[in-house]
């Protein structure tokens, strides 16, 4: 029994190895993809005549140089600026766009609560604990001192925000139809981690001295004694296992947006299309401009983006078109 518990000691190392290798692999994979066109999306006035007003908001939303593009990235990463513009189109309301910035609100609450929760967990991984960790926990519990142990607001906020973010994917028809199983999977992992963590703190009390000794043994690479492993609470093991599974799953999941956001061409390019020539990395010196060509050659294969004729189209989608034709639909070119 006691030997098998060492699985839990090996688990975080395996999870972090997958995580680190996976994240670096994906970053390098993204960094290797060319950006053929200049595609910044803008929502502000770009520099022009002096009498056309251009505020600092325009500079962020339509950055004219690298510096302002960097500022725009900071706004995107730390304040989720593009989510702040979130609206939803309603046909039934006469084609009006409704304000859905509550998504931004709950996304902000969730991400920042999670950040503070992760910082608070440093108390298990450091010995002695740095002062700022205690201070953050004290400030976090300032509102909830009425009970012992103090109710930490980030835990509650994260749970409420998660309920909204998941509820949005479950109860709103349009969002439900675009939700993939992987969207629900990561939310499920977060829910299990959050609920088990809150249960451990407030309801099912766990002997934390062994939890901390176990955490220290992981971070100092000092195998724990069988006594420590034997005294770990089952609820802690659920919490811990799900954290490890989630960490190992991150490189394969959409949570990779934490790295991917830095690679979004619509966000990270300055809007200077007209002042600087953007050179397509895989087609640096074209004889004919790309849009004037009959087709684009990639990997020796010609893709006819313009003047696509029926025969080429049929060759490209032969299998699917034949399958449709088998169901007694007429397949013919539109003339």
């Amino acid at each position: 029994m006691s030997e098998i518990m060492y699985i839990f000691y090996i688990l975080p190392y395996v999870a972090f190895a997958i995580f680190i290798v996976g994240v670096i692999y994906r970053i390098i994979n993204w960094a290797n993809s060319a950006v053929p066109l200049k595609v910044p999306t803008t929502a502000g006035q770009q520099p022009t005549f002096n009498f056309i007003r251009r505020t600092w908001v325009d500079k962020i939303d339509s950055p004219s140089n690298k510096f302002w593009a960097f500022i725009r990235m900071l706004f995107e990463v730390f304040l989720f600026r593009s989510l702040f513009r979130n609206t939803k189109y309603y046909v039934e309301k006469g084609g009006k766009n409704a304000d859905t910035r509550w998504l931004w609100l709950f996304a902000m609450l969730f991400h920042y609560s999670l950040l503070i929760i992760v910082i608070r967990h440093l108390r298990f991984f450091t010995n002695p604990t740095p002062k700022f960790v205690s201070t953050i926990e004290y400030l976090d519990g300032l509102v909830g001192v009425a009970i012992v142990p103090p109710l930490l607001m980030t835990g509650v906020i994260a749970l409420v925000a998660l309920a909204f973010l998941w509820g949005r994917r479950i109860f709103l028809a349009k969002e439900r139809s675009i939700s993939l199983p992987s969207d629900h999977l990561i939310l499920f992992f977060m829910a299990v981690i959050l609920v088990s963590g809150l249960l451990m703190r407030y309801i099912v009390k766990v002997d934390l001295s062994y939890v901390k000794m176990f955490a220290l043994s992981i971070i100092t690479v000092h195998p724990p004694s069988p006594e420590v492993l034997a005294n770990l609470h089952w609820l802690f093991l659920i919490h811990f296992t799900f954290v490890c599974i989630t960490i190992a799953y991150l490189p394969f999941s959409k949570v990779m947006h934490f790295a991917g956001v830095w690679f979004s061409p619509t966000r990270n390019m300055p809007n200077d299309n007209r002042r600087k020539r953007h050179v397509n990395p895989w087609d640096p010196n074209p004889e004919v401009p790309i849009l004037a060509r009959v087709g684009i050659v990639v990997d020796g294969q010609v893709f006819k983006s313009k003047k696509l004729d029926w025969n080429t189209y049929y060759e490209m989608y032969k299998d699917q078109l034949d399958e449709i034709a088998e169901n007694n639909y007429t397949i013919k070119p539109e003339l």
């Binding site: 991984f125 010995n127 220290l216 100092t220 000092h222």
Partner: peptide, 9 residues
């Protein structure tokens, strides 16, 4: 944050 000073205890 601990300047590498984590003690297993």
């Amino acid at each position: 944050v601990t300047a590498g000073n984590i003690k297993y205890e």
